[in-house]
């Protein structure tokens, strides 16, 4: 069953056709990679899923529900979490608080004036946040202020924040960009692991082919705003259209 169904999505910025009749179908429980050269429209497409941008035409259906008429927080409450290209975290707060906030949001919904109980007495939320931090390997830094983290740790923290919500669909925008080889491999292992134990569907935008081919169940190739191929990884590897998009016509010929 397709959990995310994208049909005929178009987006134009002035004279630039950023997305050109994009169709995409993401199966429940799989890892779906979107690759493509710089400026192909990958991030624009992701922005259309989370309510940051609205496509000019077309539809984005998640679990049979349109994501286009609703706001970012409603999309998240429906079960879509996103990891950004540059980590979006609460830099003034501690790691533990960073993960407790999404846990509260998951429990209390988009608005609740929950002013009487103390945060440090919310044992259930705390335990849940700690278990996610344990899974992601940040538990010993729980009291550190998030701004003090390394870039790699910030990315992992953002991933922990998304996982704390038990999302149905996790969108990752270049989750290993700027990471060392060791960190990249650790992230690959992590993404494989959380995929298996929780059955979370993931859509990954990635430049690193090593990451893409170790993780993806299916790959969509975007070039100049259009999906030029959507297939299994082994077929993508040999697809001449993909080589053309990445290397140019002459190289293929």
């Amino acid at each position: 069953m397709a959990i995310l169904q994208v049909r005929n999505v178009n987006k134009r910025f002035g004279g630039l056709q950023a997305l050109n009749d994009v169709n995409l179908s993401v199966e429940q429980g799989t890892i779906h990679a979107i690759i493509g050269p710089n400026g192909a429209g990958k991030s624009t497409l992701l922005n259309c899923f989370v309510g940051r941008l609205t496509p000019d035409t077309g539809s984005v259906m998640f679990n049979g529900k349109s994501l286009l008429e609703i706001t970012p927080h409603e999309i998240n409450q429906a079960g879509v979490s996103r990891v950004f290209q540059t980590p979006e975290i609460f830099t003034d707060l501690t790691i533990l608080e960073n993960v407790m906030i999404p846990t509260f949001a998951h429990r209390d919904g988009s608005f609740k004036v929950n002013w009487w109980p103390r945060v440090d007495k919310e044992a259930q939320t705390r335990d849940h946040a700690m278990s996610v931090l344990d899974e992601i390997g940040l538990v010993d830094k729980k009291d550190v202020v998030a701004s003090a983290l390394s870039r790699g740790d910030k990315r992992r923290l953002e991933m922990a924040m998304c996982l704390a919500q038990d999302p149905k669909l996790l969108l990752l925008d270049e989750p290993t960009a700027g990471m060392s080889r060791a960190d990249t491999n650790a992230t690959i292992d992590l993404l494989k692991r959380i995929g298996k134990s929780r059955g979370i569907t993931k859509v990954i935008i990635e430049h690193d082919m090593h990451v893409v081919f170790s993780l993806a169940d299916k790959i969509a190739v975007l070039a100049q705003g259009a999906v030029i191929a959507e297939d299994l990884p082994e077929n993508i590897k040999t697809d001449p259209r993909v080589k053309e998009a990445y290397l140019g016509e002459e190289a293929v010929a």
Binding site: V50, Q77, E88, F90
Partner: peptide, 23 residues
């Protein structure tokens, strides 16, 4: 309280809070 924590989160990164399901 959790309410106060949300208010602190508004100050730090309102954008992230929106994408975390909080209005």
């Amino acid at each position: 309280s959790p309410f106060g924590l949300m208010l602190k989160a508004v100050k730090t990164n309102q954008n992230r809070l929106n994408y975390t399901g909080v209005n």
